[in-house]
Design a binder for these strands. Structure first.
Lengths: 176, 176
DNA sequence: TTGCTCCTCACGTCACGTGAGGTGGC
DNA sequence: TTGCTCCTCACGTCACGTGAGGTGGC
């Protein structure tokens, strides 16, 4: 959650990872301190899978589909996952289990969230005209509202199901 | 919904379909009248699939797994579905889409609901001791309560997701 | 050298989708 | 005879599960 610099995992262009050249804002200062010393925070695929509650196979599969990219690889080719990577994986599982989205639909949601984070970064002085930025934000907003509508529909269905169940339970209790 | 005589689709023993030998209660009188004249209420697999919102393949698959059994077959071997059959199919889809249960889990839920309906029928004078009946009903009750718990957990997850989304939407609106 | 974790194929599974080729009543 | 609906295989797909056989750093 709240990970600003994960933009462009799939379709968007990505800068060539020039780590020390980024502007240091208060929000990224903590992350920089972590990156400077805490490189041991990167996990192997086994530990990462366990923490995220998924299988190693699922992590490789999400990567194959372009949903996630491990933050690093060792010289020997072993995948290394950051806490942000894990948050992204948990988000995928949430969208699967709570909303029943498939991985194509999840890719759309993630791309949208990435774009929003990118816009928020670009808010601190970037070559984006006010009009362009406004248009992007309104696109993101409407996609979020779409998502909100499907979540709300699911909630309504669940609540009517709950009411049915409560009625049945009451009737059985009445017979006892 | 409210279909009393669908008991024992999969594991339970089933009487050899001796239609006219059943006891006529007020509840079944209407169904008998329907059966006496309204045999055209039975649908072919194409119309049944359309009404229930599923594919023909899905109907055959559910039957293969023992989840449903079409109420009849024509001499030529064509499946015929009753309104109760369709209600059962809709129930299967609801348990899939709203709760995310797989077909094995759905079979358990349906068996439980069938049993409860059976007990309710047996309430009108059947060779079941009060103790036996009480035990069966308490089993069904606890299974229903289990189901209620999983539904409630889903609802909680959905509501926290809704809150997150609303917060995000508000923030984007603030930037606009 | 021995464990342990990790790697890449590659086949299996669940819940169907999708033709292929044939039957049956208007 | 022609349409239409239905039938039973049987292979394809999605999101992984599950070994098979090999590599790599303590």
């Amino acid at each position: 959650m709240r990970t600003p610099a994960r933009a462009g995992t799939t379709a968007l262009a990505r800068p060539p990872d020039t780590a020390p050249a980024e502007p240091v804002t208060p929000a990224t200062a903590a992350a920089q301190a972590e990156g400077a010393e805490g490189r041991e925070r990167l996990l192997g695929i086994g530990a990462a899978a366990q923490r995220a509650g998924v299988s190693e196979r699922a992590l490789r599969y999400y990567q194959q589909l372009g949903l996630i990219t491990p933050s690093g690889r060792t010289p020997g080719g072993l995948r290394r996952y950051s806490p942000d990577d894990l948050a992204r994986v948990r988000r995928i599982r949430q969208l699967q289990s709570v909303l029943g989205l498939n991985l194509d639909e999840i890719a759309v949601v993630l791309r949208n969230e990435d774009r929003l984070a990118e816009i928020r970064l670009a808010f601190h002085g970037q070559p984006l005209s006010g009009d362009e930025r406004r248009k992007l934000m309104q696109e993101c907003l409407s996609l979020h509202q779409d998502l909100r509508a499907t979540v709300d529909a699911k909630r309504t269905a669940l609540e009517s199901m709950l009411a049915d169940l409560d009625e049945k339970i009451d009737r059985v209790r009445g017979l006892l």
